[in-house]
Computed example of a mutant assay.
Amino acid sequence: MARDTERYDVNLSILFTELPLLERPAAAAAAGFDAVELWWPWTDTATPPQRELDALRRALADAGTRLVGLNFYAGQLPGPDRGALSVPGHESDRFRANIDVAAGFAASVGCTALNALYGNRVDGVDPAVQDALALENLVLAARAAHGVGATLLIETLGEPESPRYPLVSAPAAIAVVDRVNEETGLGNAAFLLDLYHLSMNGEDLPGVIDRYADKTGHVQIADNPGRGAPGTGTLPLDDLVGRLRKAGYDGWIGLEYKPGDRPSAEAFGWLGR
């Protein structure tokens, strides 16, 4: 694996969480990174006050860090939720209210990747009804993302950790990507290829890379088991990242792993710095 931080970004929703949100960009910069990503930072609201958006924008700018990935509102994450866009009622309404907020914030900081987590299956609701709602909301999100020059990302999650999340295979996520692109005609929906989650589902990771690198808009990594830093588990991340590059993927690779029982600043020794 490349022993530099040139194309790696730090996920500030899983690393540096021992610090307040507004201090994390500077901590990432001090660790040698100039690019970061975030889950939606305000889990209690899809529409935070403008002053909070402005404060995060200033923190990113003051640290000299670029936001390269942002989730749309996804409910309580970390927590029991796995997205909102396919969940009828208040959660879907919150997702729709969040679309322009998230896209506008992304545009203001130069972020060009917006991740839309699909949401869990709901008892008593026909999955076909949820899927129709999801497509409707994803089309709205894709159009908003296109309006600010961004890609809409669709992600698989790990089935053992997310038993009610329906997208637990690369083909399932790719099918949603294709449906959204067909519906909008914009071509800006893409696959978020998370090697950790795919490995949790027992997928053939080299095969997934070979088949879907051209539909991949963002990559995230963590080792398995444990969701720790590269080298703490058994995944051949050196080989897999190299395979991605050879397949033509030249985008960001998000470090979405847990730091373990040490400060986040000490969780990057695998980079050999």
Results as ranks from 00 to 15, higher is better:
residue 252 W to Y: 10
residue 218 H to R: 07
residue 26 A to K: 09
residue 46 A to W: 02
residue 182 E to S: 04
residue 115 N to H: 08
residue 22 L to K: 04
residue 242 G to R: 14
residue 57 R to I: 10
residue 89 G to C: 08
residue 38 L to H: 07
residue 150 A to S: 11
residue 129 V to F: 01
residue 92 S to N: 06
residue 137 N to S: 10
residue 161 E to S: 15
residue 156 T to I: 12
residue 94 R to Q: 14
residue 55 A to M: 13
residue 44 D to N: 05
residue 77 L to Q: 08
residue 273 R to V: 13
residue 18 E to M: 09
residue 190 A to C: 08
residue 199 S to I: 00
residue 231 G to D: 08
residue 151 T to G: 01
residue 136 E to G: 08
residue 110 G to H: 07
residue 141 A to M: 07
residue 20 P to F: 07
residue 13 S to L: 01
residue 270 W to K: 07
residue 27 A to K: 00
residue 51 R to N: 11
residue 172 A to E: 06
residue 149 G to D: 09
residue 103 A to N: 03
residue 219 V to D: 02
residue 59 A to I: 02
residue 6 E to M: 11
residue 30 A to S: 05
residue 234 T to V: 10
residue 138 L to M: 13
residue 61 A to M: 08
residue 115 N to W: 04
residue 76 Q to S: 12
residue 43 T to V: 06
residue 220 Q to G: 07
residue 222 A to T: 05
residue 261 D to R: 05
residue 211 R to W: 04
residue 251 G to L: 14
residue 225 P to K: 01
residue 66 R to N: 05
residue 152 L to P: 09
residue 53 L to F: 10
residue 194 D to G: 10
residue 249 Y to T: 15
residue 11 N to L: 04
residue 237 L to I: 12
residue 219 V to P: 03
residue 77 L to R: 13
residue 80 P to I: 11
residue 83 G to C: 08
residue 58 R to N: 13
residue 172 A to N: 03
residue 206 P to M: 04
residue 203 E to T: 01
residue 134 A to M: 06
residue 87 V to E: 08
residue 158 G to S: 06
residue 210 D to G: 12
residue 189 A to W: 02
residue 176 V to P: 00
residue 273 R to E: 14
residue 133 L to K: 08
residue 79 G to P: 14
residue 199 S to Y: 01
residue 13 S to Q: 04
residue 256 E to W: 06
residue 38 L to I: 00
residue 273 R to H: 14
residue 210 D to E: 15
residue 36 V to I: 09
residue 224 N to H: 13
residue 48 P to I: 11
residue 259 P to V: 01
residue 185 G to L: 12
residue 104 G to V: 09
residue 179 R to V: 00
residue 25 P to A: 00
residue 78 P to E: 10
residue 36 V to P: 02
residue 32 G to P: 12
residue 29 A to I: 00
residue 261 D to G: 12
residue 24 R to V: 00
residue 158 G to D: 07
residue 217 G to C: 12
residue 219 V to T: 13
residue 235 L to W: 06
residue 66 R to V: 08
residue 256 E to S: 11
residue 253 I to A: 11
residue 211 R to L: 15
residue 189 A to F: 03
residue 156 T to D: 06
residue 170 A to H: 05
residue 188 N to I: 11
residue 272 G to T: 10
residue 144 A to F: 03
residue 144 A to S: 14
residue 64 G to F: 06
residue 71 N to I: 02
residue 3 R to T: 14
residue 189 A to T: 07
residue 259 P to Q: 13
residue 241 V to A: 09
residue 247 A to C: 14
residue 65 T to N: 00
